[in-house]
Design a protein around this nucleic acid. Structure first.
Length: 409
RNA sequence: GGAGGGGUGGCAGAGCGGUCGAAUGCGGCGGUCUCGAAAACCGUUUCGGGCCGUUAGGUCCGACGAGGGUUCAAAUCCCUCCCCCUCCGCCA
């Protein structure tokens, strides 16, 4: 949620920034609800003050108190409605974008920052991951439905090596490795901003009122919810490894072949809690780490700066790292890192204490280290004419075999 | 799954219809004392919000696991839910 007092103090600047996310009207409505709320509050507080009494009331006082109560109940009912509307708007007004996020509302409005590595001239028709790896989508569909994959044999080992490689590198950079829960309470989903807006993309366990997380970001961010951190323990940097679950509700018909877009995949995620004055540099640092990992693997990629209107509600700025996929003849997203400043921290109520004693929300950031998609990029980019692919040597020590086997197992 | 106990300030722990945002102890912070420190003593020490004020601050409201109810009035009484602890059973 946004800082309503800051917004109230400088409404024009906030409105202009939010307009770039297409949320100017919601912002206006929020300010209006805020005004109504603040008109009502003093009246209620005054009545509550009158209601207070030490000791037993006299009959005359009792009569007076009963009339105060009636008046109070009417105003409180009114306030309840106003507050509900205020809260509803506060839930949906997004974090205003950083000035350095480009204008625009679509994927195409993203600005390319750089390209690294040359896509290889293969000189033959490239095979995709289904032809190169031991991946069984048919049985996945039989057992779990569309968009579920079995990875077998060497493919399974190589995928695991990839996660182990990423965790190893992150631990070397001071990240704490975490195996988090993947089922979380509603308040964790709400606090991280996936609810109420992304409800349709979440798997929900109705019987136990739990949600399956679409990224370990949720459990990592919520780990410190309702906590007061000490300034000197920041930044806290975590590297979570977990399976991720997504309904992909808006993606019908998109990326339907293979395991490029599935309901269940695995991911190593970076998550940082830091001081507000450090979040920009932390964001650049997360991007640098993503580049380093993909660079070590030798995958050709580009970096894009996502347009303001294409950002999620929480992010003020987002970089995507896109790998070259020979069969698609284009760059596709493999990692993404966002600075969510104090937006998540406010919702989750994660604060820290300054030297002078003041409590304020921390800043939070997230970034993908690797996902199964990186494996697909490895397969496609390092394949040979015979239908096998070579594996980056850095993965060998983590249990990947030197050569991938050809064709499904 | 069964039986019992409990959730109050940074921690421990009282309070069990009004004078309680809350005794007391510990811890923290400031001070006195001291060459310095310890001890002792004095003071201070929750969070959120509204309004007033340029600031310093003032003032009022709310919060005793969460939500609802009773009452003029709830930490205190009633209901529902959540969480924690102990024992037993079950599973790993």
């Amino acid at each position: 949620m946004i800082d309503i007092r800051a917004a109230r103090a400088d409404p024009d600047a906030w409105r202009a920034a939010l307009a770039r996310k297409g949320a100017a009207e919601e912002f206006d409505a929020l300010l209006e609800a805020d005004r109504e709320r603040r008109a009502l509050l003093p009246r209620i507080e005054e009545l509550r003050a009158r209601q207070k009494l030490k000791g037993k009331p006299t009959p005359e006082q009792l009569k007076e108190l009963k009339s105060v109560k009636a008046e109070l109940q009417a105003l409180e009912a009114e306030l309840e409605q106003v507050e509900a509307r205020f809260q509803e708007l506060l839930d949906i007004v997004p974090n205003p974008p950083d000035p350095s996020a480009p204008d625009g509302f679509t994927e195409e409005d993203a600005v390319e920052l750089k390209r690294v590595g040359e896509p290889q001239e293969l000189g033959f028709d490239p095979r995709d991951h289904l032809e190169l790896g031991q991946i069984d989508m048919e049985r996945g569909a039989k057992v779990s439905g569309a968009r579920f994959a079995y990875r077998l044999g060497e493919t399974a080992l190589t995928e695991l090596a990839l996660y182990r490689f990423a965790l190893d590198r992150l631990v070397g950079k001071g990240f704490t490795p975490v195996l988090p829960p993947v089922l979380v309470l509603e308040k964790a989903m709400y606090g991280t901003g996936f609810l109420p807006t992304d409800e349709v993309n979440l798997y929900r366990i109705e019987r136990d009122e739990l949600y399956l997380t679409g990224t370990s970001e949720v459990a990592l961010a919520a780990m410190h919810m309702e906590e007061k951190l000490a300034a000197d323990e920041l930044p806290l940097r975590y590297a979570g490894y977990s399976t991720c679950f997504r309904r992909e509700a808006g993606a019908a018909g998109k990326d339907t072949r293979g395991m490029f877009r599935v309901h269940q995949f695995d991911k190593v995620e970076m998550f940082v809690f830091c001081l507000p004055e450090h979040s920009r540099e932390e964001h650049d640092r997360l991007l640098a780490i993503e580049e380093e990992l993909v660079g070590e693997l030798g995958i050709p990629y580009r970096v894009v700066n996502i347009a303001a209107g294409d950002l999620g509600a929480s992010a003020v700025k987002k970089y995507d790292l896109e790998a070259w996929f020979p069969t698609q003849q284009r760059y596709r997203e493999i990692t993404s890192t966002s600075n969510t400043t104090d937006y998540q921290a406010r919702r989750l109520d994660v604060r820290f204490r300054r030297e002078d004693g003041g409590l304020e929300p921390v800043h939070t950031l997230n970034g993908t280290a690797v996902t199964a998609r990186v494996l697909l990029a490895i397969m496609e980019n390092f394949q040979d004419e015979g239908g096998t692919y070579s594996i980056p040597s850095v993965l060998e020590e983590f249990g990947a075999l030197r050569k991938g086997a050809a064709g499904p197992g």
